[in-house]
Structure formats: C-alpha cells, structure tokens
Design a protein around this nucleic acid. Sequence first.
RNA 1: GUGGCUGUAGCUCACCAGGUAGAGCACCGGAUUGUGGCUCCGGAGGUAGCGGGUUCGAGACCCGUCAGCCACCCCA
Length: 426
Amino acid sequence: MTTFRAIRGMVDILPEQTPLWQSMESAATEILSGYGYEEIRLPIIETTHLFARSIGEVTDIVEKEMYSFADRNDESMTLRPEGTAGCVRAVVQHNLAQTPQRFWYAGPMFRYERPQKGRQRQFHQLGVESFGVATPDQDAELIALSRQLWRRLGIDDALTLEINNIGSAPDRARYREALVSYLSTCREQLDPDSQRRLDTNPLRILDSKNAETQKVLDAAPVLKDYLDAESRSEFDRLLTYLEELRIPYRVNPRLVRGLDYYNKCVFEWTTEHLGAQGTVCGGGRYDGLVATFGGRDTPAAGFAIGLERLILLMQALDIKVSSPADLYVVTADEAAFRHALSRVDWLRDQFPELDVVQHLGGGSFKSQFKRADKSGAAWALVYGEAEVAANKVTLKPLRADAEQRTIDDSDLPAFLTDYLVEAYGA
RNA sequence: GUGGCUGUAGCUCACCAGGUAGAGCACCGGAUUGUGGCUCCGGAGGUAGCGGGUUCGAGACCCGUCAGCCACCCCA
C-alpha cells in the first residue's frame, strides 16, 4: 500500500488556518472595493510565450522557475508564475482600458524553486493593477491602499516601505551600458552569479548580497544620474504624496525588481520577522507592457502581495481570529433528536446569521456537553425527555456564569433576537 | 540548482556503548444512572519518513531517497 503526500512545495491550508485566511481576505476585498477596484478572474494557465515576453527571457523566473509543459496539441503552456502578465493579456484582448481601470485578483501562482520558509512552489498572491493613469498619484494610491490593509490587519508596524526610481526604458538602457562597461573592468572581483548576469541581466547585480560585489558597486555609476527630468520630478512628487500620507519610506537606490516589465517607480514592503523571505509585497509601474502585448500604449502600475507571507507575519505577531458557534444542540435520545430536527431546521431559516451546530452521533449528555464546550458555542440548546414532552427547550449558558433555564418553544425566537443584539449588536 | 541541519504517537519532544519505544498536550471512556470547563482514574493511538547495508540484534551506525528547516539564490 502506497501512502500519498502532497508534492514538494505544495501546501495544504488546513481548517485550523482558514479563519485567519478568511479574515485577511475579507479585509482585503473590503479595502479594495472601498478604493473602487474591481475583481477580475483569470486563467491559471497561459502560453509560455506570454510570460517569457513580459517577465523577460533572461530572468530567473523564466529561465528556471516555470512549470511549463506541452499540451496535447504540442503547444508550450505554463502554470502562471505571477499574475500581471495574464491580467494585461486580458486587458488587451477585451480592450478593457479605454478609460482608466482599477482591477484586482487573487489566486495560486507556481514557481519551481527550492521550498523554504515563506517560499512554496504553489503559493498565493493578491494582485492589484491599475491601467490608464500615468501620473504618480496612481503610485501613491497603490501604496496607500496597501498600507491601509496592513493597518487593518494589525501588521503596519512590522513593515517598512522601500522605494526606488528605475526610470524609463531608454534611461535604463543608457545606464546599463555604463554599468556594464564599469563592471567589465573589475569582472574578476564579482561573485560568479554576478559575472554571469553581466552578460544577461546586469541591473540585477545591484541587489547582490555578496559583500565583495557590493564593494565593487560602491564606485559604480549610479542609476539616478541617468534618469530623465520627467521621471525624476514624478518620483519627487510621489515622495511628497507619501509624506502627505505620513507613510515612512526608505529610498533604496539598489532596489531592482526581477521582472523586466517594470519602469519608473518600484517598491517593496519588507519585514524582519520572516527571515530571508522578507518581502511581503512588491510592485511598481509597468508603462510599456500593454503596448508590447499589442494594445494601445497605456500606462499601468500594480503590486502583488504574497499571501502566505502575510499569514506568516500575522502568526509571528500572534494575531488571532476565531468564529465560534452560537448554539450547540444537545438531544437526549433518538426521539428527542427527531423532535429537535425540524425545530433546528426552522431556526436556521429564521435566524440565518446564527451559527448552529447540531450534535451528531448520539452519546451521553455528558459527552455531548463536552463537545458543546469545545465547540466554543455561547449556548447549549437542550432537548431532553421532559422538554420534548412539554414543548420546551433548556438554554444553558456555556461561556457566561449564569443559571440555565427552560422556556417554551414559542419563546425561543424572542430569546435569540435578544441574544443576537447582545452578541453582535445587531 | 549549491551547502548545512533535521525527520520517533494528531502536536511539542525525550530515551538508549546499538538489545525490538516513553512524557506532556490533544483524543476516547469513567468518578450515584439529564449537564461541559477544574481534579482524579482508566483507555486507545507509533512496521521510529521510506529503501537498502553493517550486526546475533538498529529508531539509534553507514549509504541512498523523500520531505521540512536555515543560508545562498530568487521573489511575493
């Protein structure tokens, strides 16, 4: 007999965890719709070409991290490693961005990496994308929105904003040339990874963690000196907006994102609490991407949140949520169960907001009450022989320190109405 | 993909020059027969990740493999 396990890097989210996920998701969707962002749902599989084109042929994601396979028609398909490419594809395909648009989506992403804390092969992202606004007020809104979410979740203090201006594509091309010619003179002093990147993706050398490499970089040309006046003044405006919003930030001139489509403002929210995988949220502007997918030239910006990392952070900060039941129904025997069945069913119709757990599987009153206690329910509804005979029900408080009482069936709705007001202020 | 550490009950972990496994929590039952939470008593649950080797004998030693963790790398 073979036993099965989830495959490497694919993680089950168990019922114990889902309340935390749900509370995080509902906070996020509330905030997003509060800002006027609309949900868009996209396929998990796209053609391989779509990702290679947008993320970049020589990026690590495309070179070695994609789950790609030939479908039955021998076309190369890929499980999406990120969401922006598919979103932009949909925007172009359906011509959605004739006027400015705000979208969001959430779902699983796939990258073939070595699993680690905060890094899985299937993980979940919440993506937020906006199309059609070229000015930095859009970047500021995206950052402010994310900060609202951190506040709502109670993790605001644990996150810091890093931000950088990587300029326009032509700016970066000129800088790239200067950087390559400088680094080529001291190629020997670079770590092997950086040497390789010199030919493929030189800007990524900037955020190398290698100490020797960083030393070499200290004397390297600075990206900022190659930026045009427009992107500089836009970046300054963005910083002004952030100050207006009282969002602390750190300008990190070596913050370079690993996806080729970014330009101008890029940012990351990072934390110290998660070890090496400390980036919880990352994004920036990608003004050229819609056009490279064949759409009308449309400015755009967005970010993605790593949801597992958010959950990990909430757990590190000991943030808990729980939603125990309201009522737990205890019945003495088969006859009492049958008696209670239609009454409980009626209750569910009349009070849909109540969480009612009915005890199943029989057992002694004692064991049923033990379960009732463990369910976290506020009240036990007890149907015993006496209650059934007299059309009554016993209400036993499980949380509060009070006496149980027995009331007529007909008084139960009034009791529950009062309970709901008391418990939820409804 | 590279290097290091780890892998014993559902969970957190112990034991032992190598002589065929234990604790706490959780779970189930009981302590005058219609009542939980505390306490006490009892019970169930492990082919010691998997495969191979050394040995009279291995969970303990060796090799392989799978998985997790940490760092690199990468990014969310």
